Structure formats: structure tokens, C-alpha cells
Amino acid sequence: MTAELNARLEPTGERWTLVFIRELRKPPEEVWGALTDPGRLERWAPFTAERDLGTTGDTTLTMIDGDESTPLPATVRRAEPPHLLEYTWGDDLLRWELEPSGAGTLLTLRHTLPGEDGLGPMVASGWHLCLDVMERLLDGEDVRAVRGEEAKEHGWEDLRDRYAKMFAG
């Protein structure tokens, strides 16, 4: 089962920022661990991390697609546990904001993309699936990341089309 669509695209100078919002059932401290711990990241994210992302400084995030991996330079610019994590990933900027919401967390991801807004629906559908997996991981399920071409087997194309329609309208 997949969560409802809750995202928008905002112009950011010459770039676009995907603002992706998700309600999670776990408190910010637990979500923070899923966002920063390399062992947990590799279970849900589109990349692996060479170190814990909970402290500032340089690192490498390696994008995984089947047997292919692409290491990209990254810099953790802000790490304010358990509420704010911001890092570069290649030419992208990701900012994760965690707010308490009842017994859970309101997660807001601001993913600033290089180039034109046509990437928005593709990136949104990818994060949608990743966060579906993260939510299941936080709930204690034994899950693994859905990355690259494999995402097509999990409804990525339908999600992309739905986000494209939502962003156009």
C-alpha cells in the first residue's frame, strides 16, 4: 500500500525544489536514525552512505541501480538532531525537516534539483516509494530498498504519471 500524494514543486532561482511531505507514525528521534545511520539508510534510500550523516562534513553517497553504483560527493551542511538534516548530493540539495506530530512525525523533504522542472514527477515518485519502504522499516518490517529499474515493479510509472498530472494542474 502506498501513501497519498503530498508534494509540490517550487521555483528556486534557476532551479526547482520538490517539497515532499509525509506523516510518519514514529517520533522524530526514530526517524532521525533512519535518515542518518548508514545501516538503516541502505535499507530504504536510493543510495548508501559511507558514514553516519548525523554530523557535518564531507562524505560520499553512492546511488544504486541494480548492479550499477555511482558514487557522488556529498557534504552534510546542517545536522541538528532530531529536527533538521541538510546535505548536498552531487548537484542536488536535500533538506529533511522533522516536526513532532501527535505521537509521530511530520517529515518535510525539500529536494532542490538542478535543471528544469520536468524531473519533478520522476524524483517525487522515487522518494514516494523510498519513504513507503522507510515507513515499513520504522514499523519493524524486514524490508529492503526499492531502487532504480526495480521501482517499475512497484508502481513507479503510475506514481510518476500521477505526480506529473498533479504538478501540471
Rank of each mutant, 00 (worst) to 15 (best):
A3H: 15
L5H: 14
N6K: 08
A7K: 05
L9F: 11
E10W: 07
P11I: 11
P11C: 02
E14V: 13
F20G: 05
L24Q: 04
R25S: 15
K26N: 14
K26C: 04
P27K: 06
P27S: 09
P27C: 06
P28V: 09
E29K: 10
E29Q: 14
E29L: 14
E30S: 07
V31D: 05
W32D: 11
G33F: 00
G33N: 11
A34R: 02
L35P: 07
P38V: 06
R40C: 00
L41G: 01
R43F: 04
A45Q: 10
P46D: 06
E50V: 10
R51V: 03
G54H: 03
T55D: 07
T55K: 13
D58Y: 00
T59D: 01
T59R: 00
T62G: 02
T62P: 09
I64T: 10
G66W: 07
D67K: 12
T70E: 10
P71W: 13
P71E: 09
P73T: 11
A74E: 00
A74R: 00
P81M: 12
H83L: 11
E86Y: 02
L93R: 13
E97W: 04
L98T: 08
E99D: 15
S101W: 03
A103G: 08
A103M: 03
T108D: 06
L109Q: 07
L109E: 04
L113T: 03
G115H: 08
E116V: 01
D117A: 12
L119H: 06
G120P: 12
P121G: 02
M122P: 00
M122S: 12
V123Q: 03
S125I: 05
S125A: 15
G126S: 07
G126D: 03
W127A: 02
L131G: 03
V133F: 08
V133G: 06
M134Q: 12
M134C: 12
E135C: 12
E135I: 04
R136C: 08
L137I: 07
L138N: 04
D139W: 00
E141I: 11
V146E: 08
G148T: 04
G148K: 00
E149D: 14
E149K: 03
E150F: 04
A151K: 07
K152N: 14
E153V: 05
H154F: 15
R160S: 10
Y163T: 05
A164R: 14
A164W: 09
K165V: 10
K165S: 14
K165Q: 13
M166C: 10
A168F: 06
A168N: 08
G169E: 15
